[in-house]
Amino acid sequence: MSSVDLLKASAAPVLLVGVDFGLPHFDANLEELGLLAQTAGMEPVARITCKRKAPDAALFVGSGKADEIRTLAQMHGAVEVLFDQSLSPAQQRNLERHLELPVNDRTLLILEIFAQRARSHEGKLQVELAKLQYVSTRLVRRWSHLERQTGGIGARGGPGEKQIELDRRMIGDAIKRTQERLVKVKRQRSTQRRQRERRDTFNISLVGYTNAGKSTLFNALVKARAYAADQLFATLDTTTRQLYLADAQRSVSLSDTVGFIRDLPHGLVDAFQATLQEAIDADLLIHVVDASNADFPEQMAQVERVLLEIGAADIPQILVFNKLDSLSADRRPALLSDQYEVSGHLLPRLFVSAKSGEGVSHLRSVLAAKVLATPLAMTPDPSVELPDVMP
């Protein structure tokens, strides 16, 4: 069974490993990696962390710590080792030989979750492209079949083409085909956006860290039935609905986008450019924050980094601190509406509970005020509902 197959196994026991290089966002308890593992259908049975000034070139953690990881994995019956950081192909190969277990990193784990959760045609294509790009960097004689083939029929010797070269060419061809198919999907998306622009629709996109409650808030605002669950990456596909704002007496277009996460693989950022285009083209972003999470400042910073990377950093924002119902009485804010500084700018902040509905009506009023402050040429018919963006 390959390491990728193991990721799909139900409740496979895994050992979690994190290395502290002195970065401020280091998760000492490996809580997020554990949630990612559980989301992918695995069961963390042990965790181990260590400190280093820099990664070991060969084994990432050094030979002594690698021995400790092997002993701990054997003790707990782990069938795989997951690292919270990205590993180079050589480090991954060397660790597998040293530990005698499949080794994977945070990047592949996120890719596998995306592969499991993608439902739309576009989402599946985007995940396929990201996985192909990831695998293309791992062809470093990791598998036993990557040895030089013999010459063709009738050949008197002379080496044939290496299997690794055949694999690389096949993966390259698959990447090209997938990119071509994505271009067609992007073209369809662009047509849908132009239709909305002709209606002069005000576009709003929900963005935020994964599991901040974007889909639950989306459902509360538009009375939709988008899938929402208390787990990482519960939904991956962008859904767009018309939201009627009574105070503005007009409809706006509201999109629920994929959640962001720390160290999101760059391949996914590139591959999901079409999905994130909804955020890039928005007139207003609703940045949804999990107010009950103690690490919300770091999560907000991660979202801002991705927005900067995709060219959406300058779009006006409203901060919505969600999960008000999960805050204890001593943590509950005195005011449900104030301002919060982000990157040197004061942004309007609202506290809501998408689950109970508290504060949602006030959010509607704030959105209506934003729309009225941005005059548009024509008002669309609120009875007309746009279809989902995703097929």
Rank of each mutant, 00 (worst) to 15 (best):
R181L: 15
K186I: 14
G172H: 00
R193N: 07
G123L: 10
E100F: 06
P89F: 07
V140P: 03
S88N: 12
G152Y: 09
D105V: 06
G154C: 09
L95R: 00
V103E: 00
Y134H: 12
Q85S: 11
V183T: 13
S136P: 06
K176D: 15
F83N: 02
R141D: 12
H145W: 09
Q116M: 08
D173R: 10
L182D: 12
V140F: 08
G151F: 07
E165N: 12
Q92K: 07
N94T: 04
T150S: 10
E128M: 12
F114T: 01
E128A: 07
P159R: 05
S136C: 07
G172W: 03
L101Y: 03
S144C: 11
T178H: 07
V140K: 03
R142M: 13
Q195L: 15
Q188H: 15
K162N: 14
L129S: 05
T137H: 04
K184H: 15
T178C: 14
S136E: 10
R168A: 05
R194C: 09
Q163L: 13
L111H: 00
A118I: 10
I113T: 02
S144G: 14
G172N: 08
I164K: 01
Q133A: 03
L129K: 01
L99C: 04
S86A: 14
P89Y: 03
E165Q: 10
E96N: 05
K176G: 07
R117T: 04
I164Y: 02
Q195Y: 15
L109V: 03
W143Y: 11
F83C: 04
T107R: 03
D173P: 02
E128D: 13
E128S: 10
L99R: 02
R141S: 13
A90Y: 04
G157N: 12
K176Q: 15
G123T: 03
G172V: 03
E147T: 10
P89G: 05
A118D: 08
V185Q: 12
R156F: 08
S86G: 10
L99I: 04
E180A: 15
K176S: 13
Q149I: 09
S190T: 13
D173M: 12
I113C: 01
K131N: 02
R169Y: 05
A115Y: 00
L125H: 05
Q133N: 06
Q133W: 00
L111T: 00
G152C: 09
A130Y: 00
P89A: 08
E96S: 03
E122H: 07
A130F: 00
Y134G: 05
V140L: 03
R119N: 14
S144L: 12
L101I: 06
E96Y: 02
V135H: 05
H145N: 10
Q179K: 12
L129C: 01
H145E: 08
K124W: 09
L101F: 08
S190V: 08
A130S: 01
R187E: 15
K184V: 15
A118F: 10
V103N: 01
A115E: 03
G160H: 09
R187C: 13
T150H: 13
R117G: 00
T107S: 07
L87C: 05
R156G: 10
L109D: 01
L108I: 10
L182C: 14
L108F: 09
D173N: 09
G152R: 09
G157L: 13
R194K: 14
I171N: 01
Q126S: 06
R193C: 02
L87Y: 05
K162R: 12
V127F: 02
P102C: 11
D173V: 11
